[in-house]
């Protein structure tokens, strides 16, 4: 089981759209795929038309009184399942720090990794869609993930964020996730975008060659309530996600 997490400290940079489309493409390739919508806003759940609600809330899941397995919902697509968001996830930092059934990890930063372990036989790929922040949740996700997929808006500031994240992960004991950043919401008409993309792709090995363009079709996902790769598979947007997925496959 390989765990991917889409993460950025900033919100609105295309994390959820990436998670949803990459998870869809993974399933379409025949990998048994699970997407866990960890963001209390529940955007990924909404895009799959699944109610953002978990019985017993985040508390039951994190404390282990409800098995993660019981919270899983099938999406409309073969081989793609989802653990919905729940509004109680907003308190997840507190829950992760609290007591938990069968918590052998002891460290509150390892709880999500521990919860996912029993699903290894059932899924080939897991995608974690993280809420934007630096918190115990994001730290948990970084410890659980094999690959951090980091969307970057092509600006100088976001480049700093990537550096900070890389440094932070480098300080981990033991398991360290691989980081692969990609440019998101890239606007070809903006000179600054073009330059940043060109420079960074030349400088860094962990920046994907495929940018995801800023396109209104991607925004349309919230109207269609489906991945763009599913409802417009021949579009430029879908092609970009497919290229990114292929690159992820090669580089991670």
């Amino acid at each position: 089981m390989k765990i991917f997490a889409t993460y950025n400290i900033k919100g609105g940079v295309g994390k959820t759209t990436a998670a949803v489309n990459l998870a869809y493409l993974s399933a379409a390739d025949g990998h048994r795929t699970l997407l866990w919508d960890l963001d209390p806003q529940g955007a990924a759940s909404f895009l799959f038309r699944i109610k953002p609600r978990v019985k017993g809330g985040g508390k039951a899941l994190i404390r282990g009184t409800k098995a993660l397995d019981d919270a899983i919902k099938g999406t409309d697509f073969d081989d793609l399942d989802l653990i919905p968001a729940d509004f109680t996830y907003r308190n997840m930092d507190l829950l992760l720090g609290g007591p938990a059934k069968g918590n052998t990890a002891k460290k509150p930063t390892r709880r999500i990794a521990q919860l996912l372990r029993p699903l290894a036989a059932e899924y080939d790929h897991v995608f974690l869609d993280c809420p934007p922040s630096i918190s115990l949740v994001s730290e948990n996700v970084m410890h659980a993930a094999d690959v951090l997929v980091v969307p970057l808006i092509p600006t100088t500031l976001s480049v700093r964020t990537l550096d900070q994240l890389t440094e932070f992960v480098a300080g981990f004991d033991g398991h360290r996730p691989q980081i692969l950043a990609f440019f998101s919401m890239a606007d070809r008409r903006k000179k600054l975008h073009q330059e940043t993309i060109k420079d960074l792709q030349a400088e860094r090995v962990n920046v994907a060659a495929t940018p995801i363009p800023s396109l209104s079709l991607i925004e349309r996902m919230s109207v269609e309530r489906a991945p763009v790769t599913a409802f417009a598979p021949r579009s430029v947007a879908a092609r970009a996600y497919r290229d990114l997925w292929a690159e992820l496959g090669k580089k991670t």
């Binding site: 799959f48 038309r49 699944i50 109610k51 099938g74 409309d76 309530r225």
Partner: peptide
């Protein structure tokens, strides 16, 4: 045949 709920979910 898909059976959908009010959210259009199968």
């Amino acid at each position: 045949t898909r059976l959908l709920n009010a959210d259009g979910k199968t």
